[in-house]
Amino acid sequence: MSGKKLLSRLAQMLIVLIGISFLTFLLTYISPGDPVRHMYLAQGLMPDEEQVAQQREEMGLNDPLTVQYWRWLTNCLKGDFGKSYSMNKPVVTLLLARLWPTLKLALMSMIFMLIVSVPLGVLSAVYRNRPIDYVVRAITFFGVSIPNFWVGLLLMLLFCVRLGLLPVISSGGTFKDLLLPAITLAVAMSAKYTRQVRTAVLEELSSDYVIGARARGVRESRILWGNVFPNSLLPLITMLGLSIGSLLGGTSVVEVIFSYPGLGNLAVSAITSSDYYLIQGYVLWVAIIYMVINLIVDISYNYVDPRMRLKR
């Protein structure tokens, strides 16, 4: 990626971020709940009308939308995302505390996913339309059709309730706590990814150089691992990058099921307690992280794909 391209990419990211920040702000602005009342309720107080009006004035909630948005945005740029009133802590502190557990969960599930899907995908492609391919395809089909929250509940029923091997509440950060949530997330992803690996390998297998290599009598295993597999990595890296991003946002359900202390769980509780600053901060943070990851994936092409380097 050239410098100029990178700059235009960054400019686009900025526009998207501003758009997203405005959208989330607008949503909380038009939402039916009153943040002041929620704040008092969170503290266990029943405010009278006068107090509410005074507090609204103090928090600047009577200002026009654009003024409020501008104030919020400039504060965000200074690193101040406001204070969560349901947990009475700065939003940044809360988000930072939850970021690492969610990243850990995402990485762990990706490792599981790779362990399962790469061998299965290659196997399925090499033995195309043979019994083993049909079995793998059937498994992936069920894998994409099974809701992950149900998988989570079933795993929990089996391992925690019936067998008693693992804790029902994964609130710590130990390997045991991570195991079931990570497996749950990995199920649907593995199914999708196995299909992608299969398609990518099949595509490479049908290229001319494979026929050429076979004609020259190169061993099949050498063709597969020496040429075909490395060449089919490229589309897989894109997928991998994209799935880190969607994992960050997609862990909520699983985190809630296992009471895992991650970002998604925080977001859900923020929403149920109408903690608007926390919701806004969360949405913005995830958007930024997601975009940065996608950017890194794009830039990494330069290093993975020699053709891209030559183009410069």
């Binding site: 959208l23 969607s246 960050l248 997609g250 909520s252 859900v268 969360y282 949405v283 975009m291």
Partner: peptide, 12 residues
């Protein structure tokens, strides 16, 4: 699209 879908859906 530049956004993990379910996050915004949950927020909305």
């Amino acid at each position: 699209i530049a956004f993990p879908g379910l996050v915004l859906a949950i927020a909305v």
